[in-house]
């Protein structure tokens, strides 16, 4: 009988412990109060303690007979999908809704290897036209269509 370490569980355990430590450390910087009159740090400190304990248990249990592989990571996806909403947030006020949304959709479109560049541009244009018509014109949401960065 061989013993292996389940990497997934081990990493999960470590992450829970780290998260617990972060919240515990932050909570200690606040007033704790008493059980009767709890301060802002009391409840989160208790929870953080529980999270650390659970994390340790998950880690201990990672040592067992069979381990499941973690599998491939979507690196390209992480690099292109996650920045899309961030980019939208950074530029929606400056570039305005139209340009910002177009670029957001364009960035996200390149997350897949199957997407050809000219289709990506076409798709982004269509999404932008649709959204501008629906959200900005029809629903009248308070978005600036063209922001100050585009004015001369």
């Amino acid at each position: 009988m061989k013993t292996e370490i389940d990497k997934g569980d081990a990493i999960a355990g470590i992450l829970f412990i780290l998260a617990g430590l972060f919240f515990a450390y932050q909570s200690l910087g606040m007033e704790l109060g008493t059980s009767l009159r709890m301060g802002p740090g009391y409840f989160p400190l208790v929870l953080a303690g529980v999270l650390i304990l659970l994390g340790i248990t998950v880690m201990v249990k990672a040592v067992r007979n069979e381990a499941e592989p973690i599998g491939p990571l979507a690196i390209r996806g992480i690099l292109l999908i996650l920045p899309a909403p961030i980019f939208f947030g950074l530029t929606v006020r400056g570039l305005g809704f139209v340009a910002s949304l177009f670029l957001t959709a364009l960035i996200a479109a390149f997350a897949s290897r199957k997407m050809k560049p000219h289709y990506a541009v076409l798709l982004a244009v269509l999404v932008t036209i649709f959204s501008t018509l629906v959200f900005s014109y029809a629903l009248g949401l308070p978005f600036q269509r063209f922001g100050p960065w585009l004015r001369f």
């Binding site: 139209v98 932008t128 036209i129 501008t132 018509l133 014109y137 269509r145």
Partner: peptide
């Protein structure tokens, strides 16, 4: 020009 491309209605213009 871009706005017109985006299909904005004549009324709004």
């Amino acid at each position: 020009t871009y706005l017109r491309l985006a299909g904005v209605s004549v009324g709004a213009l």
